[in-house]
Design a protein around this nucleic acid. Structure first.
Length: 222
DNA sequence: GCATATCCCACAGGTTCGGT
DNA sequence: ACCGAACCTGTGGGATATGC
C-alpha cells in the first residue's frame, strides 16, 4: 500500500474514540502491550503487522502519544544504531543512509491517550515528505543534525572517559541508549572494538513534532 | 534465540508556582 | 523576596511482541 492511500482511509477514523472504533477484545493489554495501538491502526488501514523496513511501499507510519491539543508526550523511535555505526563514524552521505530511508517520507499520526483507552483517539495526521517545498528547511536541519551527531559520536569514542558513545543531540533528532538485558554491545569495524556496551537508537525529539505542528497550523489560516 | 520495534517507567536535575 | 512543592524534560533501563 502507498502512503497516500492510507491518508484517505485515515480520514474516516480520526477523532473517533477507540471505544466506537474497536471491539473490547481488540483492546486487551492496550496500555502495556507492545505498540498495540499502532498495530491496531495498521490493521484498520489495511496493512499487515510486520517489521519490514518500511510500513508503506513508499514510506513509514509513525504514531505517537500526545495530549488532546497534540503536544507530544514522548520522543519517537526511528531506528537502531548497532547495524549502521560505521556509516555514522564514516559520516556517510546523509541521503544514502538507512536513517534517511526511514525518515524521508513519513505519515505521522498523533494519538491522544488522555483518559481511559476507550476515550483515546487518533488525531489529524501530518504527511512529512522531505522532498516537498514546505519541508526544505526541515530537511536542511535534519541533515545538519545528522552530521553533528556523527561528530559527537566520534568525539565520545576518541576522547570520552570510557571510549563509548553516549547521548548525542541535534535540534530535531538524537541518539541515545535503547536496549534491555542482556545488553547488545555495538562493535565498530573501523575502530576494531566495541564502541558501546549497549545498543543505541535514533529518535525524533519532541521539538521535531512541535515544529511540524507549527507548519500545519499555519496552513489552516488559508 | 536473536534482532527489531513500540510503548512503559524511574530517576535526576532544572524550572515554575504558590504560600508566607 | 524566599523557599519548598509541583511540574517538566532528558536520560537510561525495561517489558513485550514479531519475524527470521
Amino acid at each position: 500500500m502507498r502512503l497516500e492511500e492510507a491518508k484517505i482511509r485515515l480520514n474516516e477514523i480520526i477523532n473517533i474514540k477507540l471505544g466506537q472504533l474497536l471491539k473490547e477484545e481488540d483492546m486487551v493489554d492496550i496500555i502495556k502491550n507492545k505498540g498495540k495501538t499502532g498495530q491496531l491502526l495498521e490493521i484498520a488501514l489495511g496493512l499487515k503487522n510486520s517489521n519490514t523496513t518500511l510500513d508503506f511501499e513508499d514510506g513509514e507510519l509513525k504514531t505517537n502519544k500526545c495530549d488532546k491539543s497534540g503536544n507530544p508526550k514522548e520522543t519517537i523511535f526511528i531506528t537502531q544504531v548497532s547495524g549502521i555505526i560505521d556509516d555514522l563514524i564514516n559520516k556517510r552521505d546523509f541521503h544514502e543512509t538507512h536513517l534517511y530511508e526511514k525518515i524521508n517520507n513519513i505519515l505521522y499520526v498523533p494519538i491522544c491517550k488522555d483518559g481511559q483507552p476507550l476515550e483515546w483517539f487518533f488525531k489529524k495526521p501530518t504527511h512529512i515528505n522531505l522532498q516537498m517545498d514546505k519541508f526544505r528547511e526541515l530537511e536542511k536541519q535534519l541533515e545538519e543534525d545528522y552530521y553533528n551527531i556523527c561528530c559527537q559520536l566520534k568525539e565520545h569514542i576518541e576522547n570520552g572517559d570510557d571510549g563509548y558513545i553516549h547521548t548525542s543531540n541535534g535540534k530535531f533528532i538524537q541518539i541515545r541508549s535503547k536496549d534491555s538485558k542482556p545488553y547488545h554491545s555495538i562493535y565498530s569495524n573501523i575502530y576494531g572494538k566495541n564502541v558501546s556496551n549497549k545498543n543505541h537508537a535514533f529518535y525524533f525529539k519532541k521539538d521535531f513534532i512541535k515544529y511540524i505542528s507549527s507548519l500545519d497550523s499555519n496552513e489552516e489560516d488559508f
